[in-house]
Amino acid sequence: MQSVWTLLSWGPEGWLDDIAYGVFITVSLAAATLPVGLVIGFLVALAKQSDEPSLRLAGNIYTTIFRGLPELLTLFIIFYGAQIGIQQVMRLYNPTAAVEVNAFVSGMIALGVVFSSYASEVFLSAFRAIPKGQYEGGYSVGLSGWQTMQLVVLPQLIRIALPGLANLWLILLKDTALVSAIGLTDILRQAGVAARVTKHAFLFFGVAALIYLLLAIISSFGINAIERAVGRQQVQR
């Protein structure tokens, strides 16, 4: 029976290097998903607060579907379904084309759509918190619609939406664990392999949980720094 420290050491004997690789995959997946989710979420929020009913409808269908499906199911559907779908479309043009959507990209898309549907709600309530006078003020000093959005609305929006988005980031970090089910070697999958091979299940799953906890703690520090940087203190009354 090997000691706990051998099992957790770096190198061929221990599993620390494998788990470190898992941490790298988890963090890069979450980091790659974040911008995608934010941009889509913002666009969906724009659609949902528009005056045009058809745009609102399109946005609402999006959030209804992707907030209603279990993340695991969304992941499976995109991983297996999207690949077959894209393949068939490609075959129409080029019968020999082989497209591969790998597990990382599938995970990114699946987590991105889920993140964006929640993010759109956060942005939407932030939009509602900005008084109409701000837009009118923008027009009255001669700014175009896009300039108003960029210079007047967006800076305030980010400040208001930040706590909600920070919360979503923490959820995203945890949701990445699901990609272990489609074969991406993230923290949980590496821990699972180690647990199966060494039969020290409690040790390795415990270590995995602690790593997620550590990531959450680091994130909270980062979020606090960002909140200070955007001057959240000023708007607090």
């Binding site: 995608v36 894209i86 082989a98 990209v105 960029q150």
Partner: peptide, 24 residues
């Protein structure tokens, strides 16, 4: 803002080409 947007676009394009690679 513009630059940030351009970087984001470039990054996403790079990722897509990474993910959707033609088979050898």
């Amino acid at each position: 803002m513009r630059i940030a947007l351009r970087i984001a676009l470039a990054a996403s394009a790079a990722l897509l080409t990474l993910g959707v690679a033609q088979a050898q």
